[in-house]
């Protein structure tokens, strides 16, 4: 079980969080023309890297904040955690 440092609450066990996928995906802006390809990439296509991955987690059983976690998908090492509005 991972030990994730919530930037708002501190170190907490993984079972307080839920996983939210790739944190680098940007939603296309509202009311803007989006090509089929770009939309499909946004909705469906995700990289599955072996190594560093910036991902979203929500502290659902805690402060309910969505946070960013930089984690190694191979070793599970967590390098850094960020608030939703922070960039790496």
């Amino acid at each position: 079980m991972l030990h994730i440092k919530c930037p708002h609450c501190g170190l907490r066990s993984q079972n307080e969080f839920s996983y939210g996928g790739d944190a680098t995906v940007k939603r296309p802006e509202l009311n803007k023309e989006v090509s089929d390809q770009d939309w499909d990439n946004f909705v469906y296509l995700r990289k599955s890297p072996r190594g560093k991955h910036l991902e979203l987690w929500q502290h659902i059983s805690g402060c309910r904040q969505w946070i960013k976690v930089e984690r190694d998908t191979l070793t599970h090492e967590i390098f850094t955690t960020l608030k939703a509005n922070e960039e790496i």
Binding site: L56, Q58, Q65, W66, A84
Partner: peptide, 9 residues
């Protein structure tokens, strides 16, 4: 969670 996702991120 869905609403929080859009509001926070």
């Amino acid at each position: 969670s869905h609403l929080e996702y859009y509001l926070q991120l």
